[in-house]
Design a protein around this nucleic acid. Sequence first.
DNA 1: TTGTAAGCGTTATCAT
DNA 2: ATGATAACGCTTACAA
Lengths: 340, 340
Amino acid sequence: MVGMRRPTMADVAREVGVTAKTVSRVLNDDGPVAVETRERVMEAVRKLGYQPNLMARNMRVGARDAAIGLVIPEMGNPFFGTVAGGVESVVRPRGLTLIVGSSSETAELERSLVATFLARRVSGLMIVPSAAGDHRYLRAERAAGLPIVFLDRPAVGMAADHVVSGNREGARQGVAHLLAHGHRRIGFVGDLPAVLYTRRERFQGYRDALEAAGLPFDRALVESGHDQEAASAAVVRLLALPDPPTALFAANNFASMGAVVALARARRRDVALVGFDDLPLAEVLEPPLTVVAQDPAAIGTAAAELVLSRLDGRPSRAACREQIPTRLIARGSGELPPSR
Amino acid sequence: MVGMRRPTMADVAREVGVTAKTVSRVLNDDGPVAVETRERVMEAVRKLGYQPNLMARNMRVGARDAAIGLVIPEMGNPFFGTVAGGVESVVRPRGLTLIVGSSSETAELERSLVATFLARRVSGLMIVPSAAGDHRYLRAERAAGLPIVFLDRPAVGMAADHVVSGNREGARQGVAHLLAHGHRRIGFVGDLPAVLYTRRERFQGYRDALEAAGLPFDRALVESGHDQEAASAAVVRLLALPDPPTALFAANNFASMGAVVALARARRRDVALVGFDDLPLAEVLEPPLTVVAQDPAAIGTAAAELVLSRLDGRPSRAACREQIPTRLIARGSGELPPSR
DNA sequence: TTGTAAGCGTTATCAT
DNA sequence: ATGATAACGCTTACAA
């Protein structure tokens, strides 16, 4: 039983007494086929359990695999998972399969994944670039007409299509929300400086809001950490300042969780908090967490549609950027008044 | 520039003045090649920017795609995302690519995804089966030697390898934990009855624990809901009973969140709670949530290793089942004493 | 309406 | 150490 050769088109053809081409015609609704022949072919297909070999088809037909390669930093992260889900939802109805790999945020893994995808001759490439990367090596591919779209962050060293959140505007809105509730000293808790595109943008939004309100920028109110624990520590430092903030803006979900934990540990229910990126349990926290929510599914679908439009021949001479707007969700923590 | 044909092995060969087969030898470290020839080939490869075509290779070499097809219910769900990450971490070092699709928990989508994967001639199939499915149609594939492994839930209508959490034992442990803290009336909040394998197993664990403690089973203490809101409502009903439970066991994370929300809304800090499956913010809740944590990454890696071992020729005559143990994490909510 | 021949880009086999 | 030829399973182009 094991290793039994799979039936091929030729096997089906032999069974019916026709040629492979005729079977192909039936299966692809190509060219004219006699009704009776069609029926006999279909029956032989069922009888033999024949399944067309997509590999062979792809190879002959386009020299391109009917697949889209997607690189994300991490599969277990619901943000990127939802992005991937968005991509799949637009790509599958077009008959394209999704091939996914995770880079663990390292440029090396990202590059090796991309190499694999290119070797497979995927029809399109979608990349959430890792921080340290350089994408110049993809210029030739892009020039040769391969649709390449970057997600969540733009490419480095190369002008290419990309779809990102409205980071700057979203952060501005979140901070403006705190300002509107009377806060004048607002701490910023973000990733390690300058490394990440999103951190830079959101930081700009923070400054935009302050400037629009005519408030001075105080470097002492800016703290960073690369994970939840570090963010907690950052919050502790902020609250220990001589002139501490009455509100916090957490620039990503690790920072948000770190801030929530730090405030809970310190039993500080008087510090306002707005986080960038929504959390599953946000409404259960005390107080419920006010957030600037992103729309990861929309990032995925928009990027996938961009790839499809390139595939359909939309010229890709000029790189285009798409911004997916964020949405402020007021739940309580961002509406607390200043404590002093 | 667009549509420029990619260099093939033949192009490289022509450039060097040899045959395609020689280039193939160099690239695959196959057979003997003169040192000088090898160098000239490598240089031509660089010069032309040649990249081997994996599709063609796969087709010729094994009639199998060097890929593993994985079906999960939902990409945005961190549980399944982490499972997928576990699979990838095992499969990639072996040179296999991961192809993923989500079924949205519907048997139709699952089946169509599987069909696509089979048509691509993947080397292995990994499926988190959706509730309503029937997998008899896969028996022939399995008999023909295709490695097929089910994750998180077993197959229906067919004996096949599967890797699942220790649902029953984990639930037993969680409930026993509550019993050890003095509770005698423990409510069970789960999915809709009987539909889902995991719900059945965990319910059995609940009963095991009661039985071991010599406590009677009270049907009134069992409630169900298919999402967070329904679970909340279920908890409200339980607490309104004439002789209400002093503790709750939530059999999945939706139920856990629903229970947390319901207790918070009712300002009931006196009801103990143990949830099945960990939550990101569990330690931030008040009180911090005690859980029976699963190990989704381990489920993924174990299942992937099973596929690889089958691929390496381990006979698959008998289906094997692997249980990944759970781990009780006591954080506070499960250690509350009975309120009366 | 159906068949024939050729080819997609590799690698296996057998020669040289 | 290298080459010639065929083959993998399918589709395109053309012929019958």
